[in-house]
């Protein structure tokens, strides 16, 4: 699939499917040691206040991924995050990173005051994640990966408000927290790639327009296209032949 995208074999519609992007990026990252791929990428994630919760993970951290696992705990509404990532640090502590990825669309659901449980997609995912993390004795990290150039603050704050309002007691222990990461970081992450997968990830992001502004680069010389319409001149002749036959409208 990756090669098909890089060679332009897929339709724009297929290229723009966020599940394909998620599958390609996180799928490929599984084949790199974490310190060469996953950890530097996650390290770029930042919260609304600028903090980077995944920036200082030790290089020997191990990672295990599950794609699109259904999650539904207690009275939570269920959710299907794109990736659940288990990180085990060298000291044995664990983090569960729930990854919600988007390409050109926003959240799939928004706050709904008529329901008792959080409905907003990120709020609902945090609701489930903290319960899973309690069971697994791990630290929960919610990660929102998008195509934005900078942090979608309004969207994250909206989720924050719904969770804090509907889960007052749970929020005392696990206040809503969401880090954001742009796919565009893939184009700047490795100045000197040491592995083909790093190169391909950067190419993939560029191919999908997930890059930062780097000047106008597209124009090359094009030979004059001396096509023009109207040579030889077209003459409209309205003196059409009369139709054969003797059809007529009559009652």
């Amino acid at each position: 699939m990756l090669e098909a995208i890089l060679k332009g074999k897929l339709s724009r519609e297929q290229e723009n499917m966020e599940d394909i992007l998620t599958s390609n990026v996180f799928g490929l990252l599984q084949y790199l040691s974490p310190e060469k791929g996953l950890l530097p990428f996650l390290g770029q994630a930042q919260q609304v206040d600028g903090a980077r919760p995944l920036a200082d993970l030790p290089s020997s951290t191990t990672a295990e991924m599950k794609f699109w696992p259904w999650q539904e705990y207690g009275e939570c509404l269920g959710c299907e995050p794109d990736v659940l990532l288990w990180l085990v640090l060298p000291d044995g502590t664990r983090q569960i990173v729930l990854i919600e990825s988007k390409l050109w669309s926003g959240k799939s659901s928004y706050p709904d005051p008529s329901r008792p449980a959080p409905v907003d997609q990120l709020a609902r995912e945090w609701d489930n994640l903290v319960r899973l993390a309690q069971v697994e004795k791990a630290k929960p990290v919610l990660l929102y990966v998008t195509a934005d150039l900078d942090c979608p603050v309004a969207s994250i704050r909206e989720s924050h408000v719904e969770f804090q309002q509907k889960r007052t007691r749970l929020a005392e222990q696990f206040p809503f927290s969401c880090a954001w990461l742009s796919w565009r970081k893939l184009t700047t992450l490795w100045e000197s790639p040491t592995h083909k997968i790093q190169e391909d990830l950067a190419l993939l992001a560029s191919r999908l327009g997930l890059s930062y502004y780097g000047g106008i680069t597209c124009f090359g010389p094009v030979a004059d296209a001396d096509w023009c319409f109207g040579s030889p001149a077209i003459v409209f002749d309205w003196a059409a032949d009369t139709l054969a036959g003797d059809w007529r409208f009559a009652r």
């Binding site: 000047g215 680069t217 124009f219 296209a225």
Partner: peptide
């Protein structure tokens, strides 16, 4: 080459719009 050149020019313009 006329037809392909026209298409190439149009696509360059589209890329420019993207940038």
């Amino acid at each position: 080459d006329k037809g392909p050149n026209i298409l190439k020019a149009i696509r360059q313009v589209r890329t420019l719009h993207g940038q």
